[in-house]
Amino acid sequence: MIFPFKTRTDATVSCGFCKEPLTEKQLLSGGYICPHCGGLLKMPPRVRIESIVDKNSFSELYSDLKSVDFLDFPGYSEKLEKARAATGNEDAVVCGRAEIDGYPCMIFVMDTRFIMASMGSVVGEKIARTFELAARRGLPVIGFTASGGARMQEGIISLMQMAKTSAAVKKHSERGLLYVTVVTNPTTGGVTASFAMQGDIILAEPNALVGFAGRRVVEQTTKQRLPDNFQSAEFLMEHGFIDNIVPRRDMKKTLSAILRLHNTEAGK
């Protein structure tokens, strides 16, 4: 569930849900939806952005921010190196400015291939800057969340990112500007407990795992058997925490409709 696909050496991959083999081409043309079982596979941030925004409208920002192992934390430097090599990115979120059907917005997409998209200084700083710039420019923010939570390898500074990002979201909100969250698989911990749950409108991808504590932690705490759909997007929607579950193929259309309804510059 947590690792929807694994890369094989021969550049073919297997679906993390049904284990059937897939080619890169099948993935790209099929919008990272498994043609065998319909499972939603992990979409690299730039592929996600291309699937949502108008052609050539995306300009990336803050891409040169780099994480630092300032606590000399066991294994962190190696983890960072591996994640950089695997993704070609400096950290776990891609941010920038784009247009969706002509409506300008700021967009960020988190990348679970990078240390489970945990939030350390760089993720927190990029998210905060995204909201601050959006507030100055009067732009809405569209955010695709996915994360294992705060990045413990940065100690208390990672926890403080929850406060830093939340304060930036609030400032943006107080300007009367729109923030739409799309929670994707999996969104947990400190990201759920900060900007993932602070959108004016919260959308989710089908079957996405969304929660605060991990399933195992909840089971250990309560010694209860949990329902199979526990912490699924559908479970959260039933409990009133999500506005809508949107299939991948409808995502652009839905976001465009929302932007249009919020009277952005291009919509006037």
Partner: peptide, 26 residues
Amino acid sequence: GAYCGMEAEERGQGQAIAESIMEMSA
């Protein structure tokens, strides 16, 4: 830490904390 039980998840523990942090910041 915040309670990690099933009913806490059902009632939106993450959302409750997110809102508290955001509102307290302002």
